[in-house]
């Protein structure tokens, strides 16, 4: 089976009048199909830019991205839109349409890909049921809690039956209890639907909780790439120069 996502020598620089910022400086990364892959790094490391290269919300300056074996650099806009419909994405601040109900939000991706109204409503209701908030179908985002909003966002991201789910700091605005409920949901969905999941986060606990593999990104390059095991925290701490903190905490840093 082909890897779900390959980034090969991806660079991205943002040019402004004053300066050029190199957000990514040669990223090589492979995410196998069905993996839950964590990308961890400090703020400003380039994680968000990296994940946006996967669905081409950011076009890499150089290098190539492959999704399910398909190179993305030469895609026409219509092909790109089709590709995006096969990749779900959720965000730190949920980014729900405020003037639509939960149901309306989940229906949106179906509407734009031309589903008829009744079918779209039926499918949206099924999805809301799947993420455990069927009873909130007619609530507006302003009436929902953070965890509920993220559930709606997940249902919306899954509407077009994607094979990949991108999570950009998806639990960073949630309290710890809600964070783990959402992570558990993502893990269950990944197993049930065979989803490949890429999780961008600055929290080690998130990676430890559900990721099988991880990459540590610093200054726009992958510093470390491997499986999530017992040494994972040490590796991350050492790489970000936090070994002293680890000692202070009594070698184990999972409090």
């Amino acid at each position: 089976m082909k890897p779900a996502i390959i980034l090969s020598g991806v660079t991205k620089s943002f040019r402004s009048k004053k300066a050029t910022v190199e957000a990514l400086r040669g990223i090589d990364l492979t995410v196998e199909s069905g993996q839950i892959f964590g990308v961890i790094g400090l703020s400003g490391a380039g994680k968000s830019t990296l994940v946006r290269c996967i669905n081409q919300l950011e076009k890499p300056t150089s290098g190539e991205v492959y999704v399910n074996g398909q190179a993305l650099s030469g895609l026409k806009r219509s092909q790109l839109l089709k590709l995006r419909r096969s990749i779900g994405m959720i965000f730190q601040h949920f980014n729900l349409l405020n003037q639509r109900t939960a149901l309306g939000n989940v229906r949106y991706p179906l509407e734009i890909s031309g589903w008829d109204k009744d079918k779209a409503t039926k499918k949206a209701l099924e999805l809301l049921d799947r993420v455990g908030i069927a009873d909130k179908a007619n609530a507006y985002p302003a009436e929902l809690s953070g965890g509920q909003k993220q559930r709606v966002a997940i249902a919306r991201a899954l509407a077009n039956d994607p094979s990949i789910l991108l999570c950009d700091e998806a639990t960073s605005a949630l309290d710890p209890a809600t964070t783990f409920q959402i992570l558990k949901l993502i893990k269950d969905l990944s197993t049930q639907l065979g989803l490949t999941v890429v999780i961008i986060t600055h929290e080690m606990l998130v990676v430890k909780a559900i990721c099988s593999h991880f990459a540590l990104v610093e200054d726009g390059v992958v510093k470390y790439n491997g499986v999530v095991d017992d040494d994972f925290e040490k590796i991350v701490f050492n790489a970000i120069g936090g070994s002293e903190i680890l000692e202070l905490l009594g070698t184990k840093g999972d409090s």
Partner: peptide, 25 residues
């Protein structure tokens, strides 16, 4: 802008973003 980015990530055309996201929101 986050809402617009989300719509973009779902593969909306620019026209769809104008009609179904910007104006209604």
């Amino acid at each position: 802008s986050g809402v617009v980015e989300a719509a973009d990530s779902m593969g909306s055309t620019r026209w769809q973003i104008i009609w179904k996201v910007l104006l209604p929101e």
